[in-house]
């Protein structure tokens, strides 16, 4: 009985130490691999600031490599209520680095002298970005339709109701 106890204790300790050593090497290798996954930015939210005449984008970087936004560009398409003409502004220099697994705010200033956004106006913004792992340049496009808060809320509720109904 005692012999069995001693042998079992030694065997279990050996298993524990072996699994610890093995998982240490595996996890350190895995950590190194995970540190080199570039992610493409996800635009979570866009809000229009009437006083400053700019749009603020909340951009998330889901990867584990920092992303640098080099350039911004946008196309303005007027809605039914607006008297402004359609215009394009491209190659606005930007140098915003989004750290890995975090969120940054990118501000897009609209053309000076133009009147403030009306409901129904559409702005399609294009961000050009790169990361340290390659020399390529990538773009991400986001369309933003300026709508009243009531409409947005109603839409959100509709969406929620639909989700609830589908469940």
């Amino acid at each position: 009985m005692k012999y069995f106890l001693v042998a079992t204790t030694i065997a279990l300790t050996g298993l524990f130490v072996g699994s610890g050593v093995g998982s240490y090497f595996t996890s350190s290798k895995l950590l190194k691999q995970f540190q080199n996954i570039p992610g493409s930015p996800i635009i979570l939210n866009a809000t229009y600031d009437k006083d400053e005449h700019l749009i603020t984008y909340t951009v998330s970087n889901p990867g584990t490599v920092p992303i640098t936004v080099i350039e911004k560009a946008f196309v303005f398409t007027p809605g039914k209520e607006s008297k402004e003409k359609e215009y394009v502004v491209s190659s606005i220099p930007a140098n915003i680095t989004i750290p890995p697994i975090s969120v940054a705010l990118i501000k897009l200033k609209l053309k000076e002298g133009t009147e403030s956004l009306k409901y129904g106006d559409l702005i399609v913004a294009t961000f050009t970005y790169k990361h340290s792992l390659s020399k390529d340049i990538y773009t991400v496009a986001h369309s933003f339709k300026y709508t009243s808060e009531k409409v947005e809320k109603a839409r959100g509720n509709e969406g929620k109701n639909k989700e609830g109904a589908s469940k």
Binding site: V6, T9, I10, T13, G14, V17, G20, Y24, S28
Partner: peptide, 18 residues
């Protein structure tokens, strides 16, 4: 890493002691 390296030796010490 150093701890796991030492724990391999400690395992043999423990087994021999028991």
């Amino acid at each position: 890493g150093a701890f796991w390296g030492a724990s391999v030796v400690t395992f043999f010490v423990f087994a021999l002691e028991l």
